[in-house]
Amino acid sequence: MRVAIADDDSIVCSSLSTILEATGTADVAWTANAGADTVTRYEKDAPDVLLVDVQMPGMNGLEASELILTAHPDARILVLTTFADESYIAKALEIGTKGYLIKQDVSSVIPAVQAVMAGQVVMGAEVLNKLRTGVQPMATRTLLDADCNGLNEIPERFANLTEREREVLELVAEGLDNREIATKLFLSEGTVRNRISDILAKTNISNRTKLAVEWLSCQ
Rank of each mutant, 00 (worst) to 15 (best):
R2I: 11
V3W: 01
A4R: 07
A4S: 10
A4M: 15
I5Q: 04
A6K: 14
A6N: 06
D9V: 08
V12S: 06
I19C: 00
E21W: 03
E21T: 11
T23R: 14
T25V: 15
A26R: 10
V28Y: 07
A29L: 14
A29I: 12
W30K: 08
T31D: 13
A32C: 09
N33S: 12
N33A: 14
A34Y: 11
G35I: 11
A36E: 12
D37I: 14
E43M: 06
K44A: 10
K44S: 14
A46T: 08
D48S: 10
D48A: 12
V49N: 03
V52D: 01
V54Y: 03
M59C: 04
N60A: 04
A64H: 09
A64M: 13
E66W: 07
I68W: 07
I68G: 05
I68K: 05
L69Q: 05
T70W: 03
H72D: 13
P73L: 00
P73R: 03
D74T: 07
V79P: 04
V79R: 02
T82Q: 07
T82C: 03
F83W: 11
F83S: 05
F83Q: 02
D85P: 09
S87Y: 06
S87H: 10
S87M: 13
Y88K: 10
Y88M: 15
I89N: 01
A90M: 14
E94T: 11
K98M: 00
L101E: 00
S107L: 07
S108N: 08
I110L: 01
P111L: 00
A112S: 13
V113K: 00
Q114I: 12
V116W: 04
A118D: 07
A118Y: 01
Q120M: 00
V121I: 14
V127Q: 01
R132H: 02
Q136T: 09
P137D: 07
A139C: 11
T140I: 09
R141G: 15
T142S: 06
D145I: 12
D145C: 07
A146T: 09
A146V: 15
D147R: 12
D147A: 10
D147C: 06
C148S: 07
N149D: 05
N149I: 10
G150Q: 05
G150I: 08
N152V: 14
N152Q: 06
N152G: 03
E153N: 08
I154N: 10
I154H: 04
E156K: 10
F158D: 07
F158M: 15
N160P: 01
R164T: 14
R164H: 09
R164D: 11
R164L: 10
R164S: 08
E165P: 15
E165V: 12
R166A: 09
R166C: 13
E167L: 14
L169D: 02
E170M: 07
E170H: 15
E170A: 09
L171N: 04
G175Q: 02
L176S: 02
D177R: 03
N178D: 11
R179Y: 08
K184Y: 02
K184R: 07
L185P: 01
F186I: 11
L187S: 06
G190Y: 05
T191Q: 04
V192G: 02
R195S: 05
I196L: 00
S197F: 15
D198C: 12
A201N: 08
K202M: 11
K202V: 13
T203K: 09
N204A: 05
N204T: 14
I205R: 00
I205M: 04
I205K: 01
N207L: 04
K210W: 00
V213Y: 04
S217E: 06
C218Y: 03
